[in-house]
Design a protein around this nucleic acid. Structure first.
Length: 243
DNA sequence: ACCCAGGGTCATA
DNA sequence: TATGACCATGGG
């Protein structure tokens, strides 16, 4: 397993800086995107977001005023529309109660994180994405991409509980100071690089040709170009012919 | 036609 | 604590 810090350096050297990568013109829009993108491609989430933008619904006050059925229909491209509509309106109502995103700016990160986690439909990953991109806090976001990449690189805790893996990365990436200057920018860059790398190379069916992390990766080498399905078939997944 | 996608929640064992 | 089912649309 290469050190997470070296992982970051290699990805950055290969893909270049991805800074300020999460789309959205406001903290609220970023938070909406974090919910809409759950288990969904960004392309679909953006379609839903674009419809809300066209209807000028990208404010908490506007969003809570919508009929749930109307909101659900508008965000249908993002999938799980009924569920996500409920989550968006719950978030919007909460923000109104709090006095808007600006009123949360001086809340300490742990307290803000706990408050976000108490909202329906906001789990650890979504909360951390909101903290990192909407509230500009230096937070490590753990997503399925990070687990997949780290797992293939042989990280011992790639499949550990969220907080365990997160702490391991914090310790490895930011020895000493999570409050160091530029930490937020660096961690946003890292998350963006992980997403980009997982989509270009470290997919479910890995595309190792041209991968910048081949050194030290268990997928480097001969079977690199095989898809998971092909690997499974070769391993004995093909049933014997009857007769 | 099948698989996958920038999760979260709830019910079981 | 840890799996499994469910939520659902759209692109490769």
């Amino acid at each position: 397993m290469i050190a997470p810090d070296l992982l970051y350096q290699r990805l950055r050297a290969h893909y270049g800086p991805q800074d300020d990568w999460w789309p959205g013109q406001s903290a609220f829009e970023i938070m909406l995107g974090a919910i809409l993108v759950q288990r969904t491609r960004w392309h679909n989430a953006e379609q839903a977001l674009a419809r809300l933008r066209a209807e000028r619904a990208l404010t908490p006050a506007a969003l809570v005023a919508w009929e749930p059925a109307r909101l659900s229909a508008a965000i249908r491209p993002a999938g799980f529309a009924a569920t996500k509509a409920r989550r968006l309106q719950a978030l919007a109502q909460w923000l109104l109660d709090q006095g808007g995103t600006a009123a949360l700016a001086d809340r300490p990160t742990p307290a803000l994180r706990a408050a976000l986690l108490a909202r329906p439909g906001i789990g650890e990953e979504t909360a951390d994405a909101m903290l990192l991109y909407a509230f500009r806090r230096p937070v490590v976001v753990i997503d399925a991409y990070a687990r997949r990449i780290l797992g293939r690189l042989g990280h011992p805790q790639a499949n550990a509980r969220y907080g365990v893996l997160q702490q391991a990365l914090v310790a490895a990436l930011m020895p000493g100071s999570a409050a160091a200057a530029g930490a937020q920018r660096r961690l946003a860059d890292l998350h963006a690089l992980i997403v980009t790398h997982a989509q270009r190379h470290c997919r479910v069916g890995p595309r190792c040709s041209g991968c910048p992390l081949q050194a030290g990766c268990v997928h480097a080498g001969g079977q690199a170009e095989l898809t998971d399905r092909a690997v499974g078939a070769r391993a004995g997944g093909v049933p014997a012919l009857p007769g």
